[in-house]
Design a binder for these strands. Structure first.
Lengths: 207, 207
DNA sequence: AGACCTATTGCGCAGTTGTCCAACAATGCT
DNA sequence: AGCATTGTTGGACAACTGCGCAATAGGTCT
């Protein structure tokens, strides 16, 4: 295959790994699959990554970090704290459009047996919690929300959203209430003493 | 190994499989591991189970069904609907004492790639939802709760509890609020128009 | 006792996995 | 140009997987 600079090659490997991970799941991602996805040899991968675990961990770390960064920048687009939190609910599904909550579920399940994944999983989760807690503190400082313990409330909101996502992806055939996300928003509005509908989806709102 | 009747042997295999599943995870459970756990040969397992998928599905089905049955009977011990719901919160952690939520997480992640598991996972989840919805309907009928849509509220309570459990097992090092389960109870109390503390843990209450 | 049934064994087969390594090719340096 | 460095290949290796099968052992029935 065409020669690349080390940086390009590393990134190409991570990209290919992500595609395979999303398609087949973390546990079922093999060195040969990744090599085949790139159209190169399997030995090449071990030239750049000491072990398969390292590769998987780095790939997951990148996609998870990117998602967090994307959400953070989307939220930062507005100045109004309430609007920022509404944006968070809009974009948060623990996934970009392209890789899916399924990968998080995989990572959670694998994490207990793959220390490298566990570290990333925990670090990113803390970051998500910190992001939401920061939004809440901003809102309280601006006087548009009420909250005694921003960390606790952030933790609750994330737990709630994760549980909701878990149900949706694991039991897609069940009649999932259309207002599932509306329920999450309503909960947050109550908890933060916001008026009803304050966090309503902007996309929905503009229609 | 000592000869057993077919029924005993089948059950012994399922028991051993469960022990290995809990210890190593579903995906990492192999025929040889199960055989080693029993102290028998691997061929014996294929004499009783057509495929490894069948064995894993049956083992998971049994532990999940047992847990549901145990919870249902614990709940049925009381006549008062509120007390029954409180008992549900006491015993529900989607796990007996001995196998852990980790197995559910594994099953969820594996289900998308193992149809046999998917079926059990969905069936049991529906049963849990139905159990809670029934408790709510009983409470409404008895006049001690208020609820318009028992199915929707049951779904929310289970989603909330699952998200909570997910956070706890996946990020055990995080400072999980001690009142995490209290939060879930409080939510249910609000949703069902119960007085504050009505669902408080009986174990805690009796101390 | 002998005949029969079946639980159980132990091993082998084909396939897959992560990892390693000698050879090859392309690039840059002097 | 010659040489060193390094990206890249393709295959070998041992360890693993689920599964199948001939042989054995233990029990029941006539």
């Amino acid at each position: 295959m065409a020669r690349m600079t080390p940086d390009e090659r590393r990134e190409a490997i991570v990209d290919a790994t992500l595609r395979v991970m999303i398609r087949q799941g973390i546990a079922a991602t093999t060195v040969r699959d990744v090599a085949g996805e790139m159209g190169t040899s399997s030995g090449l991968i071990h030239h750049y990554f000491a072990s398969m675990d390292d590769l998987l961990a780095e790939a997951f770390d990148r996609v998870a970090s990117d998602d967090l960064a994307r959400t953070a920048s989307a939220v930062a687009a507005s100045d109004d704290p309430v609007e920022r939190l509404a944006t968070f609910f809009d974009v948060y599904n623990r996934s970009g459009d392209d890789w899916g909550m399924q990968l998080w579920l995989d990572a959670w399940a694998e994490a207990s047996r793959r220390p490298a994944l566990q570290q990333t999983s925990r670090r990113l989760n803390e970051a998500w919690q910190a992001l939401v807690a920061g939004l809440i503190r901003d809102g309280v400082a601006a006087g548009s929300m009420t909250c005694d313990d921003s960390n606790a409330v952030a933790w609750r909101i994330i737990s709630l959203l994760d549980g909701l996502a878990l149900q949706v992806i694991a039991h897609a055939h069940l009649v999932v209430p259309d207002d599932a996300t509306a329920w999450a928003r309503g909960y947050a509005e109550d908890e933060l003493a916001l008026e009803r509908g304050a966090l309503r989806s902007k996309a929905h709102h503009e229609m």
